[in-house]
Every structure is written in structure tokens, then in C-alpha cells.
Nucleic acid binder design. Structure first.
Lengths: 155, 155
DNA sequence: CCTAATCCCATTGACGCCCATGATATCCCA
DNA sequence: TGGGATATCATGGGCGTCAATGGGATTAGG
């Protein structure tokens, strides 16, 4: 199954291209669409990315929602209208469209951060800052977690 | 399967023609009717569009509603009475009829917004405004989506 | 006969495809 | 174990192709 771990920082060239880390490409190798799907995060200054199968599973979950309902419209507008298919070129690079670069404030380098079933693209310094916060929050919440009992796992 | 994602803005020329994005055309390539079906949305200032197969699935869905009931009449009147088949020309363009342009307030450009199994045509600025709202509402409902079982997406 | 839609061709600009280079890690063999 | 050969990957740049667009010609239809 798809599994993205570790973080890689690659350069964005003057054409707006950036290499997707080879290990991430290997994870996506079996997919029919050779490339990734990326859309801006709701709350973070980052892009959520995964293979097409992941997007397909999102479509499947929206099928439980009534067509033309408010909920359906809001979900599909954010998930599909803002999502972009980014195909690999011969060297395993993708082109980052202007809109996505703007959302994540990407300029000359992109950090690919594994998140398990999907991964994220960050401006490298923003990622560092975010990770520091996340570590801090995790440390703060440890106590709470412990009190809640065993089930805590990875959250 | 058919999958429309991403948003593309194309110009409407002085003859009322507009190019359908190549990726959308590719999605529709297998269909017998080379073109799209479009009808005005009854809640949004936009046009719902898809291939003929999707319209067929809508017909199937209305069979769950009692024939000659008020609801059936309302649905079929809205969905099918104003729907238009718009054929591609040699370059993959369609002509937008006056009535449809009026409903969506289209003037010099059209935004094609993917919605998964179908897509919509908007006046570009109206789409931006709508997406901003939808995004906000979707962010509020993040928890709901997660409970429906798709994977954790983002946290 | 006039208006309007369809067809056909030209332009241009972006994107995909290809090759070259350099740097790094891996392997093989002495 | 060390050093050289090799494969892999990230990066840069040139070039061809195709998509979007515009305009003219031809045909249909009222």
C-alpha cells in the first residue's frame, strides 16, 4: 500500500519544475496515472498530495452525499475544483502551477514531507517552523493523552 | 471512469465560442456523442455539465421519485427541459447559447470547474467568490467528512 | 438574400519530451 | 578495506508539438 515517509527538499527550476523524490515516485509506480494529485490545504500553508487512487477514494466517499446538496457542493468545490493533476515528465518532475505556488508561498525550493498515506509540499522554512510547533504541541498534549488511557497510539 | 478535476479559464470569442479544456475532452473521448450536455443550475449562477452518460445516470436517479409527483415534475423540469447538447467543433470548442450565458452571466471568459463526475461553467469572478465561501464551510465541516470513513486526510 | 452557424487554416505561446551534466550513493573487485 | 567503476537521481536547457485563440471562407436556413 502507499506509504510516504521522510522529508526531502528539492529545487524549483526557472520553469517551475521540481523533482518528486524517487522514493515517493516508487510508491506511486503502480498507479495508472503517472503523476500526483495536489490541492491546497484548508488550514495550512501547504499542499496535500497523493496518487490518483487516493482522489478516487475521496470521490467514492462523496457519493454517499446527496447530489446538489449544500454539503456535496462544498466538498466537491474544495476537493476537485482546486485539485490539480500533475503528471511526471520523463525525469520524474512535476510543474507547480502558479495558484499552488501562491498558496504555499513556494519560490525556489519545495519540501516534500511524508505523512503516511499522502504527503505534503511546503516552503522549506515554513515546514521547519510548523514542525517545531507540532513538536511543541505534541509535548504539551502528552499528558492529556496519557490520562485518556492506552488507546493513544500515534495521535 | 470519468473524472473532472481542476479549474480552467478560457476566453469566449466574439462568435460566442469557447474551448473546452483538453483534459476534460480527453475524459469525454470514449462517449458516442462528441460534446457535452449543459443545463442551468437551479441554485448556483452556473451551468452543470457532463457527458451524455452522466445525464443518463440522472434519469435513472429520478426513477426513485414518484412519477407525476410534484417533486418529479420539479426535478425533471429543472434538469432536462433546459438541458442542451453542445457539440465540439474541429478544435474542441462549443457554442454557448444565449439562454445559458444569461443564466451564468457569462461575458468574455468561462471558468470550467471540475466536480469529480461532472463539471461546471462559471463566470470566473463569480466562481472565485463561490469557492471562497465553499472553502470556508468545508473547513468548518472537516470533522464530518472524516467521520464518514474516508481516510484521515489532514489533521 | 441576409444572418448565423460550421468548417478550415494560421498564429503563438505554453508545455511535454529529450538529451546533457554533475553529484551522490552503491557495488565490485583487488 | 579502500578505491575505482557504475548506476541512480537531481537539475538545467533546447526544441518540437499541441492546445487555445482569432479570423476568414463556406454552407445552411429562414
Amino acid at each position: 500500500m502507499a506509504l510516504f515517509i521522510d522529508t526531502f527538499v528539492n529545487k524549483i527550476d526557472r520553469k517551475g519544475r521540481v523533482s518528486v523524490p524517487a522514493t515517493f515516485r516508487a510508491t506511486l509506480a503502480e498507479q495508472t496515472f503517472q503523476g500526483i494529485v495536489a490541492f491546497p490545504s484548508f488550514k495550512l500553508q501547504a499542499l496535500h498530495c497523493a496518487g490518483m487512487d487516493w482522489m478516487q477514494s475521496l470521490i467514492d466517499s462523496t457519493q454517499n452525499v446527496d447530489l446538489f446538496s449544500q454539503e456535496h457542493d462544498d466538498l466537491t468545490a474544495s476537493l476537485f475544483a482546486d485539485a490539480k493533476q500533475l503528471a511526471f515528465d520523463g525525469e520524474g518532475r512535476i510543474m507547480l502551477p502558479e495558484a499552488l505556488c501562491a498558496h504555499a508561498k513556494l519560490t525556489e525550493a519545495a519540501a516534500f514531507a511524508g505523512r503516511g498515506r499522502y504527503f505534503e509540499i511546503w516552503e522549506p522554512q515554513a515546514l521547519e517552523a510548523y514542525k517545531a510547533e507540532a513538536r511543541q504541541r505534541a509535548a504539551d498534549k502528552q499528558r492529556t493523552l496519557r490520562q485518556q488511557g492506552s488507546e493513544g497510539s500515534h495521535r
